[in-house]
């Protein structure tokens, strides 16, 4: 029997990006960081005597707090829901099953798109943060090293939430339900954060955004957080791919 040549990961990736082409999601990716920085900078300017710590840290607390606690994870939740929307809506499952695509490629291409959204959002956020600090607020102090941590840890750690949301949106046909769960997850994450339970996905995202510590996290903390994220991504990927296989057959 002739084996069908599989479409491959890159093709899947192309398709996934096409799906999001005219989505209102990109408005959120663009405007949410912009708003955060704009308002956070304003808030810093008005309240800076009340803030403790260095100028850059102070600005980041104003800019990233709400963003990191709620809106960044929620953004990922909405993005994940958008990615499965077409399959659920048009009853595309039959179509998907007959195309020569591997379940693995489907899952990882979607996950990659989510990572892309996370990175773009965060890069934009950090860029505006730096711009705001140097140009608008005219900070004299040099940019602290923690900025690099924000740039890398933010998107990586939020993938814990993103991958869980991707799995939830796969299993749940409703568009809004996983987003509701994400929202509740934000609160649970915050609660866990305050009580030292760091493994919950939203908690990892909060740690990644690092809006409450001025210093860089220690090496052990970094290992903890990265492995935690890795755990969620692997777990959901295994479950997700298995689910897709079952749908295919």
């Amino acid at each position: 029997m002739q084996t069908v040549k599989r479409l491959g990961f890159c093709k899947c990736l192309e398709v996934e990006f096409l799906k999001l082409k005219n989505s209102p999601l990109w408005w959120a990716v663009l405007l949410l960081p912009l708003l955060s920085i704009f308002i956070g900078s304003g808030s810093y300017y008005l309240n800076n005597e009340a803030l403790s710590g260095g100028a850059w840290y102070g600005l980041w607390t104003q800019v990233a707090l709400f963003y990191g606690y709620f809106f960044y994870p929620l953004l990922m939740g909405i993005a994940a829901a958008c990615l499965w929307r077409i399959e659920h809506n048009q009853n595309n499952w039959n179509l998907l099953g007959t195309l020569p695509v591997d379940a693995r490629d489907i899952w990882f291409s979607k996950l990659t798109v989510l990572f892309f959204v996370a990175i773009i959002s965060q890069v934009f956020m950090v860029a505006l943060y730096v711009f705001s600090g140097f140009v608008i607020l005219r900070f004299r102090a040099p940019l602290p090293a923690t900025t690099l941590w924000y740039l890398f840890a933010g998107p990586v750690c939020v993938m814990a939430v993103a991958s869980v949301q991707l799995y939830l949106s796969l299993k749940i046909k409703s568009f809004t339900a996983p987003i509701g769960i994400c929202f509740i997850g934000c609160f649970v994450g915050l609660f866990c954060y305050l009580n030292g339970f760091w493994l919950f996905p939203d908690t990892l995202a909060i740690i990644g955004i690092n809006a409450t510590h001025e210093s860089l996290p220690t090496f052990s903390e970094i290992i903890k957080v990265v492995s935690g994220t890795f755990f969620w991504v692997v777990l959901t990927s295994v479950l997700g791919i298995r689910d897709l296989h079952r749908r295919e057959s």
Partner: peptide, 11 residues
């Protein structure tokens, strides 16, 4: 597209 109202909710 219900994503519109949900993103509006976010904002």
């Amino acid at each position: 597209n219900q994503a519109v109202v949900l993103i509006e909710g976010l904002f």
